[in-house]
């Protein structure tokens, strides 16, 4: 669902374009960013806000890989295993990460629902492999130790949040 604050943010974005529907990717990103995936309600809200049909917005969501309809962990870890990264060990790095997180080789979401790990194609960081994006932020020159430390920190942050809340 788009909150009031989300709608105000969207209103600012709409000023950039002569046609509302140009803001569809931004609107979907806003709707998705808290939980990392889109519900039917989100898609309906975006369609209404931009004078599009729900079907049109569903088609957009299906087309772009960063828009997701499946429940996803709070932190989405996308490891590049495309050719340039794979030549620098990214395939093995990814498999080891999945194993340490108790996930199958094709990735998935950890039992606590905090982390979704998946492999992606080129993210324009080939000279800094192995590389991952965590909720679309770059983490480069990774090692097993570095990614484990990042995951541990995020896990601790999330647990604190739950306790405090």
């Amino acid at each position: 669902m788009l909150s009031q604050a989300d709608r105000r943010e969207l209103d600012d974005i709409l000023k950039k374009y002569p046609d509302k529907r140009s803001a569809v990717l931004s609107a979907l990103y806003i709707a998705q960013r808290e939980k990392n995936y889109l519900t039917d309600d989100d898609i309906r809200d975006v369609a209404q806000a931009l004078d599009m049909t729900v079907t049109e917005v569903h088609a957009i969501v299906g087309f772009y890989t960063l828009l997701r309809k499946e429940p996803t962990g709070k932190y989405l870890i996308q490891v590049c295993t495309d050719l340039p990264c794979a030549l620098r060990g990214a395939d093995d790095f990814y498999r080891r990460l999945c194993r340490r997180q108790g996930l199958p080789p094709e990735g998935g979401t950890t039992e606590d629902g905090l982390f979704t790990v998946e492999e992606v194609v080129c993210v324009a960081a080939c000279d800094k492999a192995p590389v991952a994006q965590i909720n679309l932020e770059y983490h480069e020159h990774l090692t097993d130790e570095k990614i484990d430390a990042i995951i541990a920190e995020l896990r601790e942050k999330s647990t604190e949040g739950v306790t405090a809340g």
């Binding site: 950039k16 990717l25 931004s26 979907l28 990103y29 772009y64 890989t65 960063l66 828009l67 194609v121």
Partner: peptide, 10 residues
């Protein structure tokens, strides 16, 4: 000048 971000499509 405006920025615009895609959403994952080569």
């Amino acid at each position: 000048v405006y920025t615009h971000l895609g959403a994952g499509a080569y």
